[in-house]
Amino acid sequence: MEIRKIKADTVTKTVKQLFMDCNYFIDDSITKALKEFKEKEKSPVGRDVLSQLLENNEIAAAEQIPICQDTGMAVLFVEYGDKVVIEDGSFKEAVEQGVREAYDEGYLRKSVVSDPVFDRINTKDNTPAVIHTEIVKGDKIKFLVGGKGFGSENMSAIKMLTPSYGAEGVKDFILETVRKAGPNPCPPIVVGVGIGGTFEKAAQLAKKATFRPIDTENPDPRYAAMERELLENINKMGFGPAGLGGNTTALGVNIETYPTHIAGMPVAVNICCHAARHKEAEI
């Protein structure tokens, strides 16, 4: 395979468009789920909340304004082909510039502060982004991006389970995390779960799981069954839409896994609100 040159500007334009689009246009799988769950919702207040969310998402798409004012911290999963060379700039700077332009020109909220503990000064352009890059074979760059709001991010948790906990231990920890979150993360939620790898790998997988459409399932039937069982059990908790009671607490549970160490079984649970924003593109 030949070396392929991609202009930094092409990277910037792609990233910019992805972040604007993901904040204006909700994924079809979420719209479908909101409609389906509305039919099954037992609480009248809950049905009303789900109707309002559907209406909200229609307004956002029609007027191209953000679904939620928390347009998130910019997260990117990049599969970078090993034959790609960036021309007229650097990859990292081109990505940051795309985020900057999207949040500035797209009327998205700038929510990033410079230092987490002491200064907490808004960087005013929503950079830096969180960029996870994997070098893969090929001459393309694939982007999977999302704006992650923190109302739900703050309700996430990770636990270093050990092998003897088994599948039951995994499920208990996921349910416990959702129960603790209660009405706070803007239910109905999407639950992203990462199992395996190391401490940080599990957390990355959990985030990536929230970026998967909720009408898909894990290719391993055992995990697919776990996704369905967890969704059912979460919806028995009673929190309901907006936490005001009902049987629609989650719209979907997505599990991603990775091989792990003989001594470990890390489980990360990344909670995402109903405004589960993600988009992908390949250049």
Binding site: A60, E63, Q64, I65, P66, I67, C68, Q69, D70, T71, Y107, L108, R109, S111, G151, N154, N184, P185
Partner: peptide, 22 residues
């Protein structure tokens, strides 16, 4: 409890939902 998104002209305010109260 709100931190709005910027207003897109001609709107007076941007999207402005509630943030977590706790």
């Amino acid at each position: 409890y709100v931190g709005p998104a910027p207003a897109k002209p001609p709107y007076a305010v941007g999207p402005a939902g509630p943030t977590s109260s706790y």
